[in-house]
Design a protein around this nucleic acid. Structure first.
Length: 305
DNA sequence: AATGCGTGGAC
DNA sequence: TGTCCAAGCAT
């Protein structure tokens, strides 16, 4: 799992001007940013929160249409709070990790009950919401409310690992990540907010995991990884999670059947989803525990209404 | 703290 | 084809 060789540096692209890294990245972002719907002016904190939850471990292209439909249907937290779990699980579609859909609904309930239907702007209040952790809380405060906040996701950790620490890959998330990135942020608050999204964008478009495009990087001339000659990752290789044949696949298949059915289904109807009875049963149990599935009095299964 | 949790595009 | 990867969180 070695990192592919970076693209050779294009000598025509910008040189180190001596400007602080944070300022350079904000200026780069102005010309390089993708035109994503949740970045449009006027996007409120609820819409930002929904986008951030959907984007957890999920590619942008898959999120866009679901995000639009979701906000058209539930434009405010109170709207989603009034929906049933079955409705949100179906609306989640095939984004993956459907427990996120349940937690997003639970977060909407909490916002409605505890915060008068207004998404809180404080990081500690955001972190107290279901499904909202270290990253998402800061992303909502920063991108939804314009607060200066260190925002660290997998892209940012990879950029800091290379640019600052000279390592090929990011270490697991640490609280020191927040300090590292805060040290690079511009002094001006509005630019600090754009800096947070700019670093993520650099990691998503240029300083990518597999085949970094260093020739297009605005800060390559001060990248410690590049200056050190692109040393290979020296830690233990990261294991990619298997999918085929796992409970995750089986759960997905079972939920697929139940999303399509608009009446509770007999246990027999789930055999088509997965033929191994033991694994099917185990996965059904875990879906029941998670609240993604319920069983009727007569033994049939459905999404939770 | 290591693990489980979906899905599908790219190469 | 199989492998890698994509804006994490909860336990």
């Amino acid at each position: 799992m070695s990192t592919a060789s970076p693209v050779p540096v294009d000598p025509e692209v910008t040189h180190d001007t001596g400007d602080p890294v944070g300022e350079v990245l904000v200026d780069w972002y102005a010309g390089a940013a993708r035109d994503l719907p949740w970045r449009e002016p006027g996007t409120d904190a609820w819409a930002v929160l929904v986008s951030e939850v959907m984007l957890q471990q999920t590619p942008v292209a898959r999120v866009e249409p679901v995000w639009r439909a979701w906000l058209a249907r539930w434009p405010a937290p109170a709207d989603l709070a009034a929906a049933t779990p079955a409705e949100v699980i179906r609306a989640w579609g095939k984004l993956g990790y459907p427990r996120r859909a349940l937690r997003l609904r639970e977060a909407a309930v909490a916002v409605t009950e505890r915060h008068g239907g207004v998404v809180p702007a404080e990081v500690d209040e955001l972190e107290a919401l279901p499904g909202i952790g270290t990253y998402t809380a800061r992303a909502v405060a920063c991108f939804g409310y314009g607060r200066r906040q260190p925002v660290v996701d997998t892209n940012v950790r990879r950029v800091v690992a290379r640019l600052v620490h000279g390592r090929a890959e990011a270490a697991p998330a640490r609280t020191s990540d927040l300090v590292d990135i805060a040290a690079l942020a511009p002094a001006d608050d509005a630019r600090a907010v754009r800096f947070s999204v700019a670093v993520m964008e650099l990691g998503a478009l240029v300083c990518v995991a597999g085949n970094p495009r260093c020739g297009a990087c605005p800060v390559r001339d001060r990248c410690r990884w590049r200056l050190a000659g692109y040393p290979a990752h020296d830690g233990p290789p990261r294991r990619v999670q298997r999918f085929a044949g796992t409970d995750r696949q089986v759960r997905g298949r079972l939920l697929d059947v139940l999303r399509a059915a608009h009446e509770p289904v007999q246990p027999d109807a789930l055999v088509a989803a997965w033929d191994d009875a033991l694994q099917r049963s185990r996965c059904l149990d875990s879906l029941l525990v998670d609240g993604l599935v319920v069983q009727t009095d007569d033994g049939r299964f459905s999404l939770p209404d």
